[in-house]
Design a protein around this nucleic acid. Structure first.
Lengths: 336, 336
DNA sequence: CTGAAAGCGCTTACAG
DNA sequence: CTGAAAGCGCTTACAG
C-alpha cells in the first residue's frame, strides 16, 4: 500500500497470469489483446492500484508525456490565464506540464530556460516573449517549440488579433463622434505595442483624421499616470486609446486628480480586459481570449510533436479580440 | 548535435578515458574523485554538451528532482505570485516544478490532482485550498505534502498572519478616530475569511466598541458592489474593512455611484494588495508577501523530502502581513 | 580514488 | 493474440 512499494507491471502480470508486456499493451491501449485477457489485466491493475512508472516509460521509449512551459511574468493576469489553459488542455490529452521561469523576457534568458527544460520534455510552449528578438529564440536540437502572441519565422505561434482589436477601439471612439483619438502606447521594444500603434495610425489615416503625436509608457500604471498628467492639461484631447489596462488605470487617476471627468469630458479605451471591470469608471477595453490562446498553443505543439520533422511552413493562428464597452467611453462634450 | 543524439555518460566516459560511473560521480558532485580526473570529465562534458538523462536517473535512484504543485485558481494574483516564487526557489535548488490544476478547491478534486501528480514527484505543494475541509486532503502513500495558507493537522503549512493583518486594518481605522468599523467578509466556507472576521470582532470588542452585523460576499467585485449599495445607504457608516481587494473595488464603485466620497465621508481598507494601487482612490490595504510564502513552502517541502518519515509535529510557518496606507482611508467627517 | 557488474520498470523488435 | 529476450541511461552496491 505504501508509496515506497508501488505495484509494478510484473505484479500485475503475476496476478493476471499474463506476461509483463501484455500488461504494457493493455496500459497503452493496444488493439491486439483479447477482450478476456484485457478484462483480467484491468481487474488486476485496479486491485493493486497500478500506475505505470513514467521514468521507465520515458527512458525506454524515448518519448515523454511532459510538455514544458517557459514563463516570464506569471504574475501578469494574461500570462497566468494562458498557463492555466495550457495546463488544462495538456492534462486533458494526457500530458503533464512542467513550469520553468525565465528571469527576463530577453531571448538569452528564454534560451537558458529552454536549455534547462528541454531534456525530458516532448515540446515547449514559450510565453512572455515581449522583446522583439523572437528570432533569436533557439531551442536545443529539434525540440518542438511554439510561442505565444509573437510573430516568429522559426517557430509557430498563436497570438491575438492586435490589429483587429485596435481597429475596434479606434472605430468605437470615432463612431461616438470624436474628431480625433490620442494614443498612449507601450514601449517600442514590444511587438504587441507596435502592432496596436500601427493599427491606430492606419485607421485614423484611412478615416481622414489627423494623427496626433503618440505618447509612450512602459506598461506600468505609473507611466500611465505620467502620461495622463500631460494629456489632462490639453483641453483638445477628448478620446484616448491606451495600449493596456494598467496604464489606463494610472491615466484615469491623473484625470480624476485634475478634476477632468470620464467619460463626460474625455473617453478612455484600454486593452487586455484584465483590470477593466474593477476600475472607476469601469473601463471600455479590448478583451483578449487568453484561454483560447493557451488551448491553441497546446494543439499546435502536440501536432508538432506528432511529426517532429521541421515544418517548412509553420502554422500560425490568430485569436480574435473584441471590444467590451463599459462606462469610460461616450460622446465628446457638446456633441449631438 | 541533434536532439535525438543527446550525449550520454558513456560518450563522456570514452572521451575522458574514465568509466561511466566516474562521470556519474562528477555529475553528482561526489567527493571521491581526484581533481585531475574531475577536470578532465568536466571538460569532456562541456565538449559534448552532456546533460544527465533525468528519466534514467529517476528510474534507477528512485529519487525524483521534480516537485509538484497543485493549483486551483492560478488566475488569482495571489496564487500566481506564490507559484512564481515556488518555481524560482525550487529551480534554485535544482528541482523542476510540475503543475497540476484541480478543477475546484474541494478536497475531492485536490485529492484527484494529488493522485495524478503523485507518481514521479518527490513531494507536492498544494495551493488554493479554500474550503474548510483541509483535513480531508489525502496524499497517496507517504508522498510529502505541504499546503499554503491553511491550518492542517495532517500536513505542514505556510500561511499569512491573517489575524495580525486584520488587527492592523481595524487599528488603523480606530486610530483615525472612527467610532466603529463595519466589515464586509468573504464566504463562510473560507478559513481565511473567518480568521479575518474573528480578528476584527475581537479587536473591536477589546477596544470597547460596538460590533455591527457583518456583511458577507463571495470575494467577487459584484458581491462587493451589492454590499456597497447597502452600506452607502446607511449614513452611520464611516469606516469599512473589506476582506479582499476585489470586493473593495466593487464596494467603492457603489459608493461613487451613490455620490458618497471616499475618504471624506467613508474610509475603506482592503486585504491582499493585488489591485489596490490601481483603484480610485488608491486603496489602503493589508499586503501579503506571496513570494515569502512560496519560498517557505519549498523550504518546508524539501525538508520533509529529506526525511520522509512522518513528522509527529508538523512545522507551520506564519508570514507577517502589513498595512499599506494609501488614499482610501482618513479621519471621519467632522473629526480632526 | 576508480571500475566491472547488475538492475531500476518499462517498451521494442522479434518469434511463435 | 501472446511471450522471452534485450536494452534505454543511469546509479547502487561491491571490489580493488
Amino acid at each position: 500500500m505504501g508509496w515506497s512499494t508501488q505495484a509494478t507491471a510484473r505484479d500485475v502480470a503475476a496476478l493476471a497470469n499474463v506476461s509483463a508486456q501484455t500488461v504494457s499493451r493493455v496500459a497503452n491501449g493496444a488493439e491486439n489483446v483479447s477482450p478476456e485477457t484485457r478484462a483480467r489485466v484491468l481487474e488486476a491493475m485496479a486491485k493493486v492500484g497500478y500506475t505505470p512508472n513514467g521514468a521507465a516509460r520515458a527512458l525506454r521509449s524515448g518519448r515523454s508525456d511532459m510538455i514544458g512551459i517557459v514563463v516570464h511574468h506569471l504574475t501578469r493576469t494574461g500570462e497566468a490565464n494562458i498557463v492555466q489553459a495550457v495546463a488544462t488542455t495538456a492534462h486533458d490529452r494526457g500530458y503533464a506540464v512542467t513550469l520553468m521561469d525565465a528571469s527576463t523576457g530577453a531571448a538569452s534568458d528564454l534560451n537558458e530556460a529552454l536549455a534547462r527544460i528541454g531534456p525530458g520534455v516532448a515540446g515547449v510552449v514559450v510565453l512572455g516573449l515581449e522583446t522583439s528578438d523572437v528570432d533569436r529564440l533557439k531551442a536545443p536540437g529539434r525540440l518542438p517549440v511554439v510561442v505565444a502572441d509573437s510573430r516568429s519565422l522559426a517557430h509557430p505561434a498563436v497570438g491575438f488579433d492586435q490589429r483587429g482589436g485596435a481597429q475596434q477601439a479606434v472605430g468605437h471612439l470615432l463612431g461616438l463622434g470624436h474628431a480625433c483619438v490620442h494614443m498612449l502606447a507601450g514601449p517600442q521594444s514590444s511587438l504587441q505595442s507596435r502592432l496596436r500603434e500601427h493599427a491606430w495610425r492606419e485607421f485614423l489615416t484611412a478615416a481622414g483624421r489627423p494623427v496626433p503625436p503618440v505618447l509612450r509608457g512602459d506598461w506600468s500604471p505609473a507611466s500611465g499616470y505620467a502620461a495622463g498628467q500631460v494629456l489632462a492639461a490639453d483641453r483638445e484631447v477628448t478620446a484616448i486609446f491606451v495600449a493596456n489596462d494598467e496604464m489606463a488605470a494610472g491615466l484615469m487617476r491623473a484625470f480624476h486628480e485634475a478634476g477632468r471627468r470620464i467619460p463626460d469630458e474625455v473617453s478612455v479605451v484600454g486593452f487586455d480586459d484584465v483590470l477593466a471591470e474593477y476600475l472607476w469608471p469601469p473601463l471600455t477595453t479590448v478583451r483578449q481570449d487568453f484561454s483560447a490562446v493557451g488551448d491553441g498553443l497546446v494543439r499546435l505543439l502536440l501536432q508538432r510533436i506528432g511529426s517532429p520533422v521541421a515544418d517548412p511552413d509553420p502554422v500560425s493562428t490568430v485569436v480574435p479580440a473584441h471590444l467590451v464597452i463599459r462606462a469610460s467611453s461616450g460622446p465628446p462634450p457638446g456633441h449631438r
